[in-house]
Amino acid sequence: MKLWIKLTATLTLALAAVGLGGGHTVHADSHTAFINRLSKPVLQASKKYHLYGSVMMAQAALESDWGTSTLSSEDNNYFGVKGAYDGKSVTLSTAEADGAGQFFNTMAQFKAYPSVQASINDYAQTLRDGTTWNPFLYEDTWRENATSYTEAVDTIAAHYATDTNYASKVETIIAEYDLTSRFDDTTSNTDDATTIQITPGVSYATDTGTATIKTGTIKLYKQVPGPSVDATSSKTATLAGKTVTIKQRGIIKSSQTIWYQIKSGSTTGWVQLTDLLNLQESH
């Protein structure tokens, strides 16, 4: 039985026995409620971006103090991400650690999100896009590169956090709440997520709809050919004039070029917007 289920059962028995909950038991149940509340968006983001959901959930819990921090409760920022989101931000005092592991307070600007989902998706995109000076900064958090969640945690601890004990804190939460079985096994390497090759520098969005492939020969790519990726393509005329299903949309940030992942029968790939006619999107 998974630990999060055990914790709920423990709370029920304790309340039945004494008629009220002790502080520790209620605390444990609030953690379970936090995990349940963020479960769906974390699973969706980790599958879409091919990341370890257990690590994302544990980080969200640690960074937001299980959803009790002002930044998370008022601004939906669950990962302590600095900067601005769609021009919106909030300035707060934050604790940072120096090279010796000593903490000090400083003021910083943090992103303010419209929803929990936006926060989780933006963080997942950060792990995929890296930084402007290094788009592959977090590549060892990607499931195709990290053989276990611990490798992903080590990479994040090295580049994302200043706390020298960050990795152990994240891994303790993962182990205590059995997050690997709940979030990683459901998006394992046997999952369809492995067929989605993410390109750094591309903004992805789930999209649904139909379109018609233009006449002639087009190039069908395995992934969006971004500025730092020489994506494999194949020329095909078999799709000409066919109606295809839209699966995803990707926009190359540097050039604002729009691409669509299409599916026709057993054929799936990415084509540029200019290769499509009669595009009907339902998002």
Rank of each mutant, 00 (worst) to 15 (best):
K2V: 11
K2C: 09
L3D: 08
L3W: 05
L7Q: 09
V18I: 14
L20V: 14
G22C: 10
G23R: 10
V26I: 15
D29F: 14
D29M: 15
H31G: 10
H31N: 15
T32W: 03
F34H: 02
L38W: 02
L38D: 01
L38G: 01
K40W: 09
L43P: 00
K48V: 06
Y49I: 04
H50C: 08
S54H: 01
V55E: 01
M56Q: 04
M56T: 09
Q59K: 05
A60R: 00
A60E: 00
A60H: 03
A61H: 01
E63Q: 10
S64Q: 01
G67F: 02
T70S: 12
L71I: 08
E74C: 09
D75Q: 13
N77S: 05
N77E: 04
Y78D: 00
G80F: 00
G80W: 00
G80R: 00
V81C: 06
A84P: 02
Y85H: 13
K88P: 04
S89E: 04
T91K: 14
L92G: 03
S93I: 08
E96Q: 12
G101A: 08
M107H: 10
Q109R: 13
A118C: 04
S119T: 03
I120V: 13
Q125W: 08
R128I: 08
D129G: 03
D129T: 01
P135R: 03
L137S: 02
D140Y: 13
D140S: 11
R143A: 09
T147N: 14
S148F: 07
Y149R: 05
T150Q: 14
T150L: 05
T155H: 03
Y160F: 12
A161Q: 02
T162E: 04
N165T: 12
T172Y: 13
T172W: 07
T172F: 13
L179E: 01
T180W: 06
T180F: 06
N189W: 12
T190V: 09
D192S: 11
A193C: 13
A193K: 04
T194Q: 14
P200C: 05
S203N: 13
S203T: 15
Y204E: 03
T215Y: 12
G216L: 09
T217F: 10
T217K: 12
K222V: 09
K222T: 15
V224I: 15
G226R: 00
G226Q: 02
A231D: 07
T236P: 01
K247R: 13
I251F: 04
K253G: 01
S254Q: 13
W259Q: 02
Y260Q: 02
K263S: 15
V271N: 00
V271L: 05
Q280F: 08
E281N: 14
H283E: 10
